[in-house]
Write a protein that binds this DNA or RNA. Structure first.
Length: 592
RNA sequence: CGGGGUGUAGCGCAGUUGGGAGCGCGCCGCGUUUGGGACGCGGAGGUCGACGGUUCAAGUCCGUCCACCCCGACCA
């Protein structure tokens, strides 16, 4: 490709609304342009990279017997009504009506489409196991798109779906994906870890998220260096330190004016925060026969801990949670700032499992300006549910080995999920087993977003000059720079560069040829910005010695090769770059 | 949805008490330059986010709305 014809202008300055590095660089280098919040155009450079990423996904999916297909982006509402998600999913689902007033959905994922097809096509155990996948556009009307390609509303995802007779079959396909996903990220040179994640309400029993560790990540992970335990904070467990045994004391009401926070309370009474109860009021939404219903949940953790909303949601079986409004709190007789489970009725009380083991805590008195001392679970109040609802924090003890865990941020670049029979039962996607029994197909679903993956790689590999892309996903393999200028009176430089461009292309290499009439500085800076791994320079300096110059993007040294060896040498280097990626690929098997 | 911020040329920005729509980069033409974002001269490019109001006069003041960014809520 000649740069003089490329629809991708580099920018000296990034748009002011680009804040993270990958966003700035991808815009500056001409890979992407924004069209609306969370909606981007992939310019030719980005499109080539994305295609390469997707081809790596294809290859790895095909290796584990995936069959590529393409399911529609626009779905009839019926198939979403069949699984209940038409009602269940909120405004993040794109909906519209066709000309005849029929409800339509812009697919945010394709479980519905899968079961709609499979229901009619799969009838016998003889057809199973099966694995299908596609690479397709998704629309999720995220309330807050951000960080360039990291979090968008319209995106392309490789999503695959495993279909099995039983859970053993699913376990096998799950393990296949677990390994294949490490291969995909490895081939893109993106370092990731797999962490256990929330399975939500879909009845699955296991899910992993592939996380690229970076401070710009939106998820918090807890990692144990000692034993390797790793989990999303949403579900991370930890060993809680029990309070020391104490004699249970009599409850006592004390005046605590203007003391509405745990910190204030601990300071006023000169006690540690761990000697207090923290109350958080949440409104939990549940889907019932009569539709959506909200109930107030009175959640209690020890004062030194934080509530984990995902754990609470799972404990009460809610679909979603939100903080309660002050009026809603008052309506049940509690007093914000002085709230307490003591003496309350008709609310759902959920306490963290550490509370019953913590004697003589300070809790609110449900009266403005007063707290109770020596509140004890069992004697002074009881809960409807006792469960682990506290959030693990940096430094907390690992649930398996007890070592201190660390909290880090990560971007979720992929996830694998044992769905089980939730969808197949909902729509009656069943097969007949060898004994003639009708059984629901056991499913798994697995996804990787290609744009987010590209942005993560850029985030990982860059310097102040621009991108430094791995050869496997670089839009071109070679960046050929011609420095003819007016000194090139004989046209020798120009001629040589044109010939090398022709030869490299003929040899099957993907070449971006900077044939523009620009100064050397401009060309070099653009080459660095675009980040193709190998740069060849044809200029009078080397050419008078019969050579051309060669430089790897990730190294600072330049070298020279004879013009006659340009093709051969370039092929060798490019092959070396590919080999290096494959040589460093580690096979990671699922153990669990 | 709550809090904060920004909307002026393709990008980055300036615009004072209300009266001229500007600067740098980029773009077009001519010339000089040519190994790390060169220089001179000449040029094109604007519903000043939108609508309404105040005023002799609005980029500037007032109101409403919209868009985009950041934090939170939410979300895979």
């Amino acid at each position: 490709m000649r740069m003089s014809r490329l629809l991708s202008q580099t920018l000296r300055e990034a748009p002011s609304d680009a804040e993270i590095i990958s966003h700035q660089l991808l815009v500056r280098a001409g890979y992407i342009r924004q069209m609306a919040a969370g909606i981007f155009t992939a310019m030719p450079l980005a499109k080539r990279s994305l295609t390469k990423i997707e081809n790596i996904m294809r290859d790895e999916m095909n290796k584990i017997n995936g069959q590529e297909m393409s399911m529609p982006v626009v779905n009839p509402a019926e198939i979403w009504k069949a699984t209940g998600r038409w009602e269940k999913v909120g405004p993040e689902m794109g909906r519209f009506q066709d000309r005849n007033g029929r409800d339509m959905v812009l697919a945010m994922t394709h479980e519905e489409a899968v079961v709609a097809v499979v229901k009619d096509e799969v009838q016998s155990y003889r057809q199973l196991p099966m694995m299908i996948y596609h690479i397709q556009t998704k629309w999720r009307d995220d309330p807050r798109p951000r960080a360039g390609l990291i979090r968008v509303r319209e995106f392309t995802m490789k999503d695959s779906y495993s279909l099995d007779q039983d859970w053993d079959g699913l376990d096998h396909q799950y393990a296949n994906h677990y390994r294949a996903y490490f291969n995909i990220f490895g081939r893109c040179k993106l370092p990731v870890i797999a962490v256990e994640s929330d399975v939500g309400m879909m009845g699955g029993n296991l899910a992993h998220e592939y996380m690229y560790i970076t401070p710009i990540g939106e998820d918090t992970l807890l990692l144990c260096d000692k034993c390797g335990y790793s989990a999303n904070r949403q579900i991370a467990e930890f060993k809680k330190v029990k309070a020391e045994e104490e004699k249970v004391l009599d409850r006592e009401k004390i005046a605590t004016p203007e003391t509405k926070t745990i910190a204030d309370l601990a300071a006023l009474l000169e006690i540690p925060e761990s000697k207090t109860d923290k109350v958080v009021f949440m409104m939990a939404a549940k889907s019932t026969e009569e539709g959506e219903q909200e109930t107030l949940v009175f959640a209690i953790v020890r004062g030194d801990m934080e509530l984990n909303e995902t754990k609470l949601m799972n404990a009460v079986g809610a679909r979603s949670l939100r903080l309660a409004e002050e009026e809603e709190i008052k309506a049940c007789g509690a007093v914000p700032g002085y709230a307490s489970p003591v003496g309350l009725k008709d609310v759902l009380v959920v306490v963290d499992d550490l509370i019953p083991q913590s004697p003589n805590l300070v809790a609110g008195a449900n009266e403005e300006g007063f707290h109770f001392k020596n509140v004890n679970y069992g004697r002074d109040f009881t809960a409807d549910i006792v469960a682990d609802i506290a959030a693990a924090q940096d430094g907390d003890a690992c649930p398996t080995c007890g070592a201190a865990m660390k909290a880090v941020r990560g971007v979720e670049v992929g996830n694998i999920f044992k769905l089980g029979t939730w969808y197949s039962e909902a729509v009656g996607a069943t097969y007949q087993d060898a004994d003639g029994n009708e059984k629901p197909i056991v499913m798994g679903s697995y996804g990787i977003g290609s744009g987010r993956l590209l942005a993560s790689v850029v985030e990982e590999y860059n310097d102040k000059y621009g991108l430094i892309l791995p050869i496997t996903i670089s839009p071109y393999e070679v960046h050929l720079v011609e420095l003819a200028g007016s000194k090139d009176v004989s046209g020798e430089v120009k001629k040589t560069a044109e010939q090398i461009y022709k030869d490299l292309t003929a040899a099957g290499l993907e070449v971006l040829f900077d044939d523009r009439d620009e100064s050397p500085g401009v060309k070099f800076n653009d080459a660095d910005l675009i980040g193709i791994p190998l740069r060849l320079t044809v200029g009078h300096r080397a050419l008078k010695e019969g050579g051309i110059e060669l430089k790897l993007r990730h190294e600072s040294e330049k070298s020279q090769i004879p013009v006659g060896q340009a093709v051969e040498k370039t092929q060798e280097i490019i092959q070396g770059l590919y080999d290096e990626v494959l040589d460093n690929l580690e096979t990671v098997e699922f153990e669990g």
